[in-house]
């Protein structure tokens, strides 16, 4: 394989893992924008999504039903998690929220270990489409489908937030929840909706991730979750285009580091990038400068 097709291969790897990170990062950034909360349990939702779809597939349900059930149950789970764990703490300090989020993350991982054991479970890849051949490069269906679905979802989400009433309410709440209430916006419902959408995207990420990287286990969400959090931070937490950009940027760095530097140093390099970013441009690539004309 020539150096160039090698590079293209890595580029495609980068797009693949990048789109997964971007999908997860969207959930982080939306929840942060609206509830000012880093939901560290968000990464574990992708694990929940993966397991629910696996149960459905093993029960013999067709793949599309498995996906729908997984997405809906993650949405419901996200809403319930907010209502029971985060809403009672809405006026508490940020650190209490953060600790609660980490607690939920551990709770989920351990509960799933209890139910499904810690043993990895094979995930049947159900994306049965032919691979794409371009010159010397072969792109498997998992890869291009992951990319296409992610991009479509990002576009739909952007249009939703820009054009629908609920989307406008979300933007208003993220800017000034008090003023949003004075407009007649139901802030509680808006926060629930945000958790529902974020968790649905995480479920999709979980399903796509499992298709590409079988087998799955109860802690599978933790590292992609943290990486996606880094992606959201890189792009500028609270910014939707920032999360997408950060996700692809991080995916690309990972693919290139793995191929050309060292796969063992991968994570340390990724975290170094985050630290550099936080030192040099704390608000992230597209982060909002908090400045207001008075």
């Amino acid at each position: 394989m020539s150096g160039f097709s090698q590079f293209i291969m890595q580029f495609i790897n980068g797009l693949n893992i990048g789109s997964i990170y971007a999908l997860i990062a969207l959930g982080y950034t939306m929840v942060y924008g609206i509830a000012k909360l880093i939901n560290f349990a968000h990464g574990d939702i992708i694990m929940v999504g993966a397991y629910v779809s696996l149960i459905c597939l093993n029960a013999g349900l067709p793949w599309y039903l498995a996906c729908i059930i997984s997405i809906l149950s993650c949405s419901a789970f996200g809403v319930i998690m907010e209502k029971f764990a985060y809403k009672p703490l809405r006026n508490a300090s940020r650190i209490s929220l953060l600790i609660t989020a980490i607690g939920i993350s551990y709770l989920l991982e351990n509960a799933f270990q209890l139910i499904f054991t810690a043993n990895p479970k094979p995930y049947p890849s159900f994306i049965a489409l032919p691979a794409l051949k371009i010159g010397a490069v072969t792109i498997s269906a998992n890869y291009y489908i992951t990319f296409i679905i992610s991009v479509v979802l990002m576009v739909v989400l952007t249009l939703f937030i820009r054009n629908t009433n609920m989307g406008k309410a979300m933007r208003a709440v993220s800017e000034d929840a008090g003023a949003a209430r004075l407009m007649g916006i139901n802030v509680d419902n808006t926060i629930s909706l945000t958790f529902a959408i974020g968790s649905a995207l995480a479920a999709v990420a979980g399903i796509l991730y499992s298709n590409c990287y079988s087998p799955i286990n109860p802690t599978m969400g933790s590292l992609p979750g943290i990486k996606a959090f880094i992606a959201a931070g890189l792009g500028g937490i609270g910014s939707i285009p920032g999360a997408v950009l950060g996700g692809f940027f991080l995916g690309m760095i990972e693919a290139m580091v793995k191929a050309y530097i060292s796969s063992q140093l991968l994570d340390s390099i990724v975290f170094t990038v985050l630290i550099l970013m936080l030192v040099l441009k704390p608000a992230g690539i597209l982060g909002k400068d908090v400045r207001e004309k008075v």
Partner: peptide
């Protein structure tokens, strides 16, 4: 209510702010 310090949605356009006013 017109709140103290105005609290307009700074990241949104004038028109979008007005539309939010008619949210209900």
């Amino acid at each position: 209510q017109v709140p103290e310090r105005r609290r307009v949605f700074a990241q949104q356009t004038v028109e979008e702010n007005l539309i939010l006013g008619a949210f209900t």
